[in-house]
Amino acid sequence: MKKSISGLILALSLGLFNYSHASAGPLSEENVRPIEVVANGEFIKMDVHPLMNNNRLFVPIRALASLGLSYSFNPTTRVATVQNKDGDYLKISANSKTAYKNGKIIQMDTPAQNSNGRILVPIRFVSETLGYNVQFESIRKFVFVNSKDYSFDSKLLYQDDLQAARKAAIALPINTDFKTLGTLDGYRLHQYTFPAGRADTYFFNDGIYTFVQVKDGKAIAIGQLYRTERKTSLAAGDVSPEMSLDTDPIMEAYDHRSVIFFENNDGTATTGYHDDKNERVNINTKMNIYSDIIQKLPNHR
């Protein structure tokens, strides 16, 4: 039965990741995957994504409105004003290091930027000035922004609504206690595989397999595996380069009933699984927001 899931994973991987594993030169903006933002456990829908510039990460200040910020922008002065629920406010101008908090001048170490009419600010500035906890996860290139009073409810992983439980699982930052394998160049489509009926363990694949367990409200990577075009393998964490997707103990939870959620390159997502008659079922949906990759399935799959 393990061979069924292993073969399916391989087939999907070959179809999804038909890209070179290294770029010969600078990546174009079209080939760089947009950075997603998760605020207080929810993926944020954005028309402008965070960007990396000179190793500095900038986030759109407007995207943080879900954290209780009010936002306004003066198109004449090009000044953005944000205010939190406590009444503290910031005034920020594009291309300027000078900002104002409650009317007092404060300096940013790098200027805010303007992208398609949106003000983007350095992530460190968001953390230190607005009082949020900010974390950047390098495996999937996600930014996690949490208010000081936010805490993840572990019960979400075991609720009856399995779709919501899995969305909660992928909205947790993946933590590691080992040196990761890094990331592959170019736009990488994402894929998640969950055991049937469960949300507390999964493996993520964007050309590199990352095996994750969620315990005590934290998503912990067990290890990573990368298979090169030359059939050699690289591994990190508690994973061997010789790991078999059929027989390794990590794969014990995964069998022919496992569910695979993956992106397509046309703005849609597909869920694949085998039904009770062991027939292949694919369900497609439009992705309006990243978490739409996790679809609702019948029979507690």
Rank of each mutant, 00 (worst) to 15 (best):
R301F: 05
A253G: 06
Q83K: 14
R78V: 01
S154G: 01
G217M: 10
D153Y: 12
K231Q: 14
F152D: 07
S96Y: 04
P34G: 12
Y150N: 05
V134S: 09
I105H: 00
V134A: 06
G117D: 05
Y71V: 14
T183E: 02
P241F: 02
D109F: 09
N284Q: 15
V82Y: 03
T183R: 15
V48G: 11
K141Y: 00
L27R: 08
F261I: 00
A63Y: 08
P75F: 07
L156M: 11
P122H: 14
D153P: 12
Y202N: 01
I123F: 13
N284L: 09
Y226D: 04
V79M: 11
N265Y: 13
I294P: 08
I119H: 07
D206S: 13
Q107S: 15
E252G: 03
R166Y: 01
L157S: 04
A269P: 06
V134T: 07
S240N: 11
M46P: 10
A164R: 15
N95K: 04
E279H: 04
G15Y: 13
A63P: 11
T193M: 01
I61N: 14
D275K: 04
I35E: 09
V48S: 10
A24W: 03
Q113I: 14
L157W: 10
P249H: 08
V82P: 06
